[in-house]
């Protein structure tokens, strides 16, 4: 079982072109900012929208091919979808929601309900079998929605921001449940999300979709360590720079230069961890390091650290402890010197 899809279509002003190839037993996350076309791609895979040009082939079966005109209706696709909204049918009980897919495929009421009940048990929500969807919490609702999608044994499981509508306290539990259930499912799995953490928890590889285009794909570790777009870098909490590398110098677009470890030459990207950026009120001296004369543009609390946004020859984000921030009187703003060791700059070809 594998999914091979290449989807091209226009939605309003957005031109979407997205090719994905997913092996069975693998979860791929389509990751990107809101409005990048992720949900549109998912809807095309589910058969809820036609694409303008391209194809969707699941398990060797052509679900859509604009060249040959092939098309399989959504109800015949064996696709399970967990939507971010419109999750449960409000007029059916939780049990009947889960049994719906089996009933639609011709299973009699009694066995369908029995299996639905088993699925509710697996997801730990059997106590709510008789409830109406509006009577249960967001986290429970997503568990039921997952049970409803999985009970039909789909070959392709599509998860559209499954944690988006769930409150923070329920997220951790639900994320674990999702991971357990999803890894036990042997079909092709696609997660659509704008949340890096969600992708990290559930997917092995990611496809970054920005402005309708795939900007990067690879394993989660690869993509987050060496992002190719500022959006990914920001989500991964990294400073991303681009420029021209030669010997031990990275020359940035604005002409400023950084000393780096030699090894890459030509157009290159570089990341710097915010906590690797040191801040000083006086110009520091000593070892081979880059010192940048910067101005404080803003400070945002970030967990137990503060993130300091810097303007200067290289726009950067530095991370300091509140104690250090206090000592350096960062709240007063003004001029600071940012220091970065050459070894803390990860340079890779563009």
């Amino acid at each position: 079982m594998s999914l091979d899809a290449d989807v091209g279509l226009t939605r309003g002003s957005l031109e979407v072109r997205c090719a994905v190839h997913v092996e069975p037993g693998q979860t791929i996350a389509v990751l990107g900012p809101n409005g990048a076309g992720k949900t549109t791609v998912l809807r095309v895979l589910a058969g809820l929208e036609h694409c303008r040009d391209g194809h969707v082939v699941l398990d060797g079966e052509v679900l859509e091919d604009t060249a040959s005109g092939a098309w399989v209706e959504p109800e015949s696709r064996r696709v399970g979808v967990v939507f971010q909204d419109h999750t449960l049918f409000p007029h059916l009980s939780v049990l009947d929601n889960v049994a719906f897919g089996l009933r639609s495929r011709g299973v009699a009421r009694v066995p369908a309900r029995r299996r639905a009940h088993e699925w509710l048990e697996r997801l730990g929500v059997e106590d709510h079998a008789a409830s109406r969807p509006r009577a249960i919490s967001g986290g429970q609702e997503q568990r039921v929605a997952l049970a409803r999608a999985l009970i039909t044994e789909p070959r392709l499981l599509l998860l559209d921001e499954p944690l988006a509508a769930v409150d923070a306290s329920a997220k951790i539990d639900l994320r674990r449940t999702l991971r357990e259930q999803v890894s036990g499912f042997d079909g092709v799995r696609i997660l659509v999300t704008h949340d890096l953490l969600e992708a990290a928890a559930l997917a092995e590889s990611v496809v970054i979709l920005e402005d309708g285009r795939v900007s990067q794909q690879g394993s989660f570790a690869e993509v987050t360590a060496r992002p190719r777009s500022s959006w990914v870098a920001r989500m991964a909490g990294l400073n991303l720079l681009s420029g021209e590398a030669s010997a031990d110098v990275l020359r940035l677009g604005n002409g400023s230069e950084l000393i780096v470890v030699r090894g890459v030459s030509g157009p290159a990207l570089a990341t710097i961890q915010p906590r690797a950026v040191g801040l000083h009120r006086e110009r520091p001296t000593g070892s081979p390091r880059n010192v940048l004369h910067s101005t404080i543009a803003g400070i945002d609390p970030h967990g137990d650290r503060w993130r300091v946004r810097l303007d200067g020859p290289v726009p950067l984000v530095a991370e300091v402890t509140p104690a250090a921030a206090h000592e350096l009187r960062l709240a007063d703003g003004g001029v600071v010197f940012a220091s970065i060791k050459a070894t803390e700059i990860d340079v890779y070809p563009m």
Binding site: V79, H86, T152
Partner: peptide, 15 residues
């Protein structure tokens, strides 16, 4: 939206 969910669950148009 709900009709679409039902479609992905295998329900034909009249259903």
């Amino acid at each position: 939206g709900f009709e679409e969910v039902a479609a992905t669950l295998g329900a034909r148009p009249w259903r």
